[in-house]
Protein backbone atom coordinates (compact mmCIF):
# COMPACT_ATOMS: atom_id res chain seq x y z
CA UNK A 1 0.00 0.00 0.00
CA UNK A 2 1.32 3.40 -1.00
CA UNK A 3 2.19 5.60 1.96
CA UNK A 4 -0.05 8.68 1.66
CA UNK A 5 1.00 11.47 3.99
CA UNK A 6 -1.73 14.01 4.74
CA UNK A 7 0.24 15.81 7.45
CA UNK A 8 -0.04 19.59 7.32
CA UNK A 9 2.02 22.38 8.83
CA UNK A 10 -0.46 23.45 11.52
CA UNK A 11 1.22 26.80 12.25
CA UNK A 12 0.94 27.83 8.61
CA UNK A 13 -2.64 26.55 8.32
CA UNK A 14 -3.63 28.39 11.48
CA UNK A 15 -2.09 31.66 10.28
CA UNK A 16 -3.65 31.49 6.83
CA UNK A 17 -7.10 30.42 8.01
CA UNK A 18 -7.40 32.99 10.81
CA UNK A 19 -6.26 35.78 8.45
CA UNK A 20 -8.76 34.51 5.89
CA UNK A 21 -11.59 34.83 8.41
CA UNK A 22 -10.47 38.32 9.45
CA UNK A 23 -10.12 39.51 5.86
CA UNK A 24 -13.32 38.04 4.49
CA UNK A 25 -15.49 39.17 7.42
CA UNK A 26 -14.18 42.71 7.81
CA UNK A 27 -13.92 43.64 4.12
CA UNK A 28 -17.70 43.37 3.72
CA UNK A 29 -18.30 45.57 6.76
CA UNK A 30 -18.76 42.96 9.48
CA UNK A 31 -16.66 42.19 12.52
CA UNK A 32 -18.68 39.34 14.00
CA UNK A 33 -19.64 35.80 13.06
CA UNK A 34 -22.11 33.14 14.16
CA UNK A 35 -21.34 29.43 14.18
CA UNK A 36 -23.55 26.45 14.87
CA UNK A 37 -21.81 24.16 17.39
CA UNK A 38 -22.73 20.50 17.16
CA UNK A 39 -20.27 19.26 19.75
CA UNK A 40 -18.22 17.71 16.96
CA UNK A 41 -14.72 18.44 15.83
CA UNK A 42 -15.46 20.38 12.60
CA UNK A 43 -17.62 23.08 14.15
CA UNK A 44 -15.28 23.19 17.16
CA UNK A 45 -12.30 23.90 14.90
CA UNK A 46 -14.15 26.54 12.86
CA UNK A 47 -15.22 28.21 16.10
CA UNK A 48 -11.71 28.15 17.57
CA UNK A 49 -10.25 29.64 14.38
CA UNK A 50 -12.92 32.36 14.34
CA UNK A 51 -12.33 33.19 18.02
CA UNK A 52 -8.62 33.52 17.37
CA UNK A 53 -9.22 35.62 14.26
CA UNK A 54 -11.83 38.06 15.58
CA UNK A 55 -11.62 37.82 19.36
CA UNK A 56 -13.96 35.49 21.29
CA UNK A 57 -16.44 38.26 22.04
CA UNK A 58 -17.18 38.54 18.32
CA UNK A 59 -18.10 34.89 17.83
CA UNK A 60 -21.59 33.70 18.75
CA UNK A 61 -21.69 29.94 19.37
CA UNK A 62 -25.20 28.69 18.62
CA UNK A 63 -26.27 25.34 20.08
CA UNK A 64 -29.34 23.86 18.40
CA UNK A 65 -30.28 20.57 20.05
CA UNK A 66 -33.21 18.42 18.95
CA UNK A 67 -34.97 16.24 21.51
CA UNK A 68 -33.19 13.13 20.23
CA UNK A 69 -29.75 14.75 20.13
CA UNK A 70 -27.24 13.08 22.41
CA UNK A 71 -26.73 14.98 25.66
CA UNK A 72 -23.03 14.35 25.21
CA UNK A 73 -23.04 16.62 22.14
CA UNK A 74 -24.30 19.53 24.17
CA UNK A 75 -21.78 18.84 26.95
CA UNK A 76 -18.92 18.82 24.46
CA UNK A 77 -20.11 22.08 22.93
CA UNK A 78 -20.17 23.54 26.46
CA UNK A 79 -16.58 22.45 27.07
CA UNK A 80 -15.47 24.30 23.96
CA UNK A 81 -17.51 27.41 24.76
CA UNK A 82 -15.94 27.59 28.20
CA UNK A 83 -12.45 27.06 26.86
CA UNK A 84 -12.79 29.75 24.19
CA UNK A 85 -14.87 32.20 26.22
CA UNK A 86 -17.27 32.91 23.35
CA UNK A 87 -20.83 34.15 23.94
CA UNK A 88 -23.45 31.49 23.35
CA UNK A 89 -27.13 30.94 22.81
CA UNK A 90 -29.07 27.68 22.87
CA UNK A 91 -32.12 27.39 20.65
CA UNK A 92 -33.92 24.06 20.64
CA UNK A 93 -35.15 23.15 17.19
CA UNK A 94 -37.62 20.51 18.41
CA UNK A 95 -40.58 22.91 18.32
CA UNK A 96 -39.69 24.09 14.85
CA UNK A 97 -39.13 20.70 13.31
CA UNK A 98 -41.71 18.49 15.04
CA UNK A 99 -44.87 19.74 13.32
CA UNK A 100 -43.38 18.96 9.93
CA UNK A 101 -41.94 15.61 11.01
CA UNK A 102 -45.25 14.56 12.63
CA UNK A 103 -47.15 15.01 9.37
CA UNK A 104 -45.69 11.76 8.07
CA UNK A 105 -45.37 8.90 10.54
CA UNK A 106 -43.46 6.91 7.90
CA UNK A 107 -40.83 9.60 7.46
CA UNK A 108 -37.39 8.19 6.65
CA UNK A 109 -34.29 8.93 8.70
CA UNK A 110 -32.81 10.80 5.75
CA UNK A 111 -35.81 13.10 5.40
CA UNK A 112 -35.79 13.78 9.11
CA UNK A 113 -32.07 14.45 9.14
CA UNK A 114 -32.48 16.91 6.28
CA UNK A 115 -35.29 18.74 8.08
CA UNK A 116 -33.13 19.11 11.19
CA UNK A 117 -30.15 20.39 9.18
CA UNK A 118 -32.37 22.94 7.42
CA UNK A 119 -34.07 24.01 10.65
CA UNK A 120 -30.60 24.76 12.04
CA UNK A 121 -29.81 26.80 8.92
CA UNK A 122 -32.91 28.94 9.56
CA UNK A 123 -31.86 29.54 13.17
CA UNK A 124 -28.28 30.42 12.17
CA UNK A 125 -29.34 32.91 9.50
CA UNK A 126 -31.77 34.49 11.94
CA UNK A 127 -28.97 34.82 14.51
CA UNK A 128 -26.77 36.21 11.74
CA UNK A 129 -29.12 39.19 11.45
CA UNK A 130 -29.72 39.50 15.20
CA UNK A 131 -26.00 39.34 16.13
CA UNK A 132 -24.86 41.15 12.98
CA UNK A 133 -22.43 38.37 12.18
CA UNK A 134 -21.66 36.30 9.09
CA UNK A 135 -22.41 32.59 9.23
CA UNK A 136 -19.21 30.57 9.28
CA UNK A 137 -19.36 27.14 7.66
CA UNK A 138 -18.06 23.98 9.26
CA UNK A 139 -17.93 21.45 6.40
CA UNK A 140 -14.59 19.77 5.70
CA UNK A 141 -13.18 18.75 2.30
CA UNK A 142 -13.99 15.06 2.80
CA UNK A 143 -17.68 15.61 3.40
CA UNK A 144 -17.94 18.26 0.69
CA UNK A 145 -16.41 15.86 -1.86
CA UNK A 146 -18.48 12.88 -0.68
CA UNK A 147 -21.62 15.01 -0.55
CA UNK A 148 -22.17 13.90 3.04
CA UNK A 149 -24.11 17.07 3.74
CA UNK A 150 -27.60 18.50 3.43
CA UNK A 151 -28.12 20.87 0.53
CA UNK A 152 -29.07 24.33 1.88
CA UNK A 153 -28.72 22.85 5.37
CA UNK A 154 -25.34 22.43 7.02
CA UNK A 155 -23.65 23.61 3.80
CA UNK A 156 -25.23 27.06 4.05
CA UNK A 157 -22.64 29.63 5.15
CA UNK A 158 -20.99 32.88 4.08
CA UNK A 159 -17.40 31.66 4.43
CA UNK A 160 -15.80 28.34 5.23
CA UNK A 161 -12.29 28.27 6.70
CA UNK A 162 -11.94 24.46 6.85
CA UNK A 163 -13.48 23.38 3.53
CA UNK A 164 -10.07 22.60 1.98
CA UNK A 165 -8.92 20.39 4.87
CA UNK A 166 -9.61 16.66 4.85
CA UNK A 167 -11.13 15.18 8.01
CA UNK A 168 -7.71 13.76 8.95
CA UNK A 169 -6.23 17.25 8.66
CA UNK A 170 -9.10 18.79 10.66
CA UNK A 171 -8.20 16.35 13.45
CA UNK A 172 -4.55 17.30 13.23
CA UNK A 173 -5.21 21.04 13.39
CA UNK A 174 -7.78 20.60 16.20
CA UNK A 175 -5.15 18.74 18.24
CA UNK A 176 -2.60 21.46 17.55
CA UNK A 177 -5.09 24.06 18.81
CA UNK A 178 -5.70 22.06 22.00
CA UNK A 179 -9.44 21.63 21.60
CA UNK A 180 -11.12 19.72 24.47
CA UNK A 181 -9.99 16.11 24.58
CA UNK A 182 -13.47 14.47 24.40
CA UNK A 183 -14.11 16.34 21.13
CA UNK A 184 -10.81 15.12 19.68
CA UNK A 185 -11.36 11.52 20.68
CA UNK A 186 -14.99 10.66 19.95
CA UNK A 187 -16.10 9.04 16.67
CA UNK A 188 -17.47 11.53 14.10
CA UNK A 189 -21.27 11.73 14.04
CA UNK A 190 -23.83 13.97 12.39
CA UNK A 191 -25.99 13.19 15.47
CA UNK A 192 -29.13 13.08 13.35
CA UNK A 193 -30.38 9.97 15.14
CA UNK A 194 -29.36 8.03 18.23
CA UNK A 195 -26.13 6.08 17.88
CA UNK A 196 -25.39 7.39 14.37
CA UNK A 197 -21.75 7.51 13.29
CA UNK A 198 -20.54 8.86 9.96
CA UNK A 199 -18.25 5.95 9.28
CA UNK A 200 -21.00 3.32 9.83
CA UNK A 201 -23.30 5.22 7.53
CA UNK A 202 -20.69 5.81 4.82
CA UNK A 203 -19.41 2.25 5.03
CA UNK A 204 -15.75 3.21 5.21
CA UNK A 205 -13.46 5.18 7.50
CA UNK A 206 -12.43 8.79 6.99
CA UNK A 207 -8.80 7.72 7.25
CA UNK A 208 -9.22 5.47 4.18
CA UNK A 209 -11.40 7.91 2.26
CA UNK A 210 -9.06 10.84 2.88
CA UNK A 211 -6.05 9.03 1.47
CA UNK A 212 -7.95 7.96 -1.62
CA UNK A 213 -9.50 11.40 -2.19
CA UNK A 214 -6.10 13.03 -1.76
CA UNK A 215 -4.70 10.86 -4.56
CA UNK A 216 -7.72 11.27 -6.83
CA UNK A 217 -8.36 14.98 -6.30
CA UNK A 218 -5.13 16.64 -5.15
CA UNK A 219 -2.63 14.41 -6.92
CA UNK A 220 -4.77 13.68 -10.03
CA UNK A 221 -4.26 9.90 -9.85
CA UNK A 222 -6.46 7.88 -12.22
CA UNK A 223 -8.75 5.28 -10.58
CA UNK A 224 -6.52 2.54 -12.04
CA UNK A 225 -3.44 4.16 -10.48
CA UNK A 226 -5.23 4.22 -7.11
CA UNK A 227 -5.99 0.52 -7.42
CA UNK A 228 -2.38 -0.16 -8.37
CA UNK A 229 -1.37 1.84 -5.28
CA UNK A 230 -3.24 -0.66 -3.13
CA UNK A 231 -6.85 0.55 -2.84
CA UNK A 232 -9.69 -1.94 -3.27
CA UNK A 233 -11.43 -1.58 -6.65
CA UNK A 234 -14.93 -1.59 -5.14
CA UNK A 235 -13.98 1.11 -2.63
CA UNK A 236 -12.47 3.31 -5.34
CA UNK A 237 -15.61 2.97 -7.45
CA UNK A 238 -17.92 3.69 -4.53
CA UNK A 239 -16.04 6.84 -3.56
CA UNK A 240 -15.75 8.10 -7.14
CA UNK A 241 -19.43 7.53 -7.67
CA UNK A 242 -20.30 9.53 -4.55
CA UNK A 243 -18.07 12.42 -5.65
CA UNK A 244 -19.66 12.52 -9.11
CA UNK A 245 -23.26 12.04 -7.95
CA UNK A 246 -22.96 14.89 -5.44
CA UNK A 247 -21.49 17.52 -7.76
CA UNK A 248 -24.91 19.24 -7.67
CA UNK A 249 -24.47 20.00 -3.98
CA UNK A 250 -21.33 21.98 -4.73
CA UNK A 251 -22.99 24.33 -7.19
CA UNK A 252 -25.50 27.15 -7.31
CA UNK A 253 -28.68 26.22 -9.22
CA UNK A 254 -27.90 25.98 -12.93
CA UNK A 255 -29.55 28.66 -15.02
CA UNK A 256 -30.88 28.06 -18.53
CA UNK A 257 -28.88 30.42 -20.73
CA UNK A 258 -30.83 32.42 -23.30
CA UNK A 259 -29.28 35.92 -23.18
CA UNK A 260 -25.84 37.16 -24.18
CA UNK A 261 -24.73 37.48 -20.59
CA UNK A 262 -25.85 35.12 -17.90
CA UNK A 263 -25.19 34.80 -14.20
CA UNK A 264 -23.00 31.78 -13.63
CA UNK A 265 -21.57 31.59 -17.16
CA UNK A 266 -20.30 34.92 -18.47
CA UNK A 267 -21.05 37.38 -15.70
CA UNK A 268 -17.85 36.74 -13.81
CA UNK A 269 -16.87 38.55 -10.64
CA UNK A 270 -15.45 37.38 -7.36
CA UNK A 271 -17.55 37.82 -4.27
CA UNK A 272 -14.91 40.29 -3.08
CA UNK A 273 -15.69 42.61 -6.02
CA UNK A 274 -15.01 46.23 -4.99
CA UNK A 275 -13.60 45.42 -1.55
Amino acid sequence: MLNVDLTINCDLARRVLTSFIRSEVTRVGFRRVVIGLSGGIDSALSCALAAEALGPENVLAVCMPYRESSSESLEHARLLIEQLGVPTITIEITDMAEPLIRRDPAMSKVRKGNILARARMIVLYDQSEAFQGLVVGTGNKTEILLGYTTLWGDMAAAINPIGDLYKTQVRQLARAMNLPRPILEKPPSADLWIGQTDEDELGFTYAEADKLLYLLVDQRYSPEECIAAGFDRGFVERVLNRVRRNQFKRMMPIIAKVSNRTVGYDFLYLRDWGT
Partner: peptide, 11 residues
Protein backbone atom coordinates in the same frame (compact mmCIF):
# COMPACT_ATOMS: atom_id res chain seq x y z
CA UNK B 1 -1.65 32.42 -4.35
CA UNK B 2 -0.37 30.06 -1.66
CA UNK B 3 -1.26 26.44 -2.46
CA UNK B 4 0.01 22.98 -1.72
CA UNK B 5 -0.20 22.90 2.09
CA UNK B 6 1.67 19.87 3.43
CA UNK B 7 4.02 19.10 6.31
CA UNK B 8 6.65 21.50 4.89
CA UNK B 9 7.53 24.85 6.34
CA UNK B 10 6.00 26.72 3.37
CA UNK B 11 3.35 26.25 0.71
Amino acid sequence: PGRGLNHGEKF
